[in-house]
Simulated scan of single mutants.
Amino acid sequence: MKKVAILQSNYIPWKGYFDMINMVDEFVLYDCVQYTKNDWRNRNLIKTPNGVQWLTIPCRFESMSQKINETKVSDKLWASKHFKTISQNYSKAKHFKEYKDLFENLYKEVADEELLSAINYKFLVAINEILGIKTKISKCEDFNLTEGQTLRLVQICKDAGATHYLSGPSAKNYLDESLFEEAGIKVEWMGYSGYGEYEQLYPPFVHGVSIIDLIFNEGSNATKYMNSFNPNFAIEIC
Rank of each mutant, 00 (worst) to 15 (best):
V28N: 12
F143N: 03
Y195R: 02
G194Q: 05
E141P: 00
T223Q: 07
L45R: 15
V4K: 04
L153C: 06
N120F: 06
K15N: 02
F103Q: 00
S117C: 15
K139N: 13
Y165G: 10
Y198C: 03
N120M: 01
E114T: 10
T48H: 11
Q200L: 05
E181V: 13
C238T: 07
D176F: 05
E188V: 06
Y192W: 14
V206I: 14
M1P: 13
E199I: 08
A5E: 00
H82L: 02
M64N: 10
T163D: 15
L179R: 09
Y174M: 04
D19H: 01
Y17K: 04
G184N: 03
K72E: 15
I46Y: 01
D25L: 11
K3E: 14
D213A: 14
T150E: 00
H82G: 00
C238W: 07
F27Q: 08
T36H: 13
L131C: 12
K2W: 05
N89W: 06
V209T: 08
I57E: 08
S138N: 09
Y90W: 06
E98L: 15
N173P: 02
K158L: 06
L29N: 00
A234M: 13
K67V: 06
S220H: 14
F103T: 04
D39Q: 12
Y225V: 05
G191I: 09
N227Q: 13
